[in-house]
């Protein structure tokens, strides 16, 4: 029991630190795509480990403890599936909104595909 409690404290601290680092990444990065990268990874692992740590802490602290663990595991699975999906949709939306990615060596394989799609749409009109 005491081992689970210390594991829960460790997970909660780790989650808070990663949530903070994700916000710092959003603050410092140069363009939208790098901001999405920093934000989505850190906020996913941060929220997952903070919520799971709280669930473990609730599991050992209250007498019917299992609902805490089951409900928090549902939230963890939902966050792990939904957060990458929404960031992927947002990155594609930003590209279709003509926000050019910040590059140093001009590597952009998606540019031609995007041009072809636009030409096809104009032909259809």
């Amino acid at each position: 029991m005491i081992v689970i409690e210390y594991l829960a404290y460790f997970l909660i601290t780790l989650g808070a630190v990663f949530l903070f680092l994700g916000a710092l990444g959003i603050f410092r990065m140069p363009d939208i795509y790098t901001r999405i990268q920093a934000g989505t990874k850190s906020s996913t692992l941060g929220a997952m480990s903070l919520v799971l740590g709280t669930g473990l802490l609730g599991f050992v602290s209250f007498t019917p403890g299992y609902p805490w663990l089951i409900k928090t595991i549902i939230i963890v699975i939902f966050v792990a599936i939904a957060n990458p999906l929404s960031s992927h949709a947002l990155a594609r939306g930003a590209y279709k909104d003509k926000i050019a990615p910040f590059t140093k060596e001009n590597i952009d394989a998606y540019q031609e595909v995007e041009k072809n799609i636009e030409e096809e749409m104009e032909d259809a009109k």
């Binding site: 680092l21 710092l24 990444g25 790098t34 990874k41 692992l45 140093k104 952009d108 394989a109 998606y110």
Partner: peptide
């Protein structure tokens, strides 16, 4: 996932932002 977070933390905390982004 854990590796990715330490990677992002290393980039964010270094003062010069060592990145070279592109789309492959």
């Amino acid at each position: 996932l854990v590796k990715a977070n330490f990677h992002v933390a290393k980039i964010v905390l270094s003062p010069s932002l060592p990145i070279n982004p592109g789309i492959v």
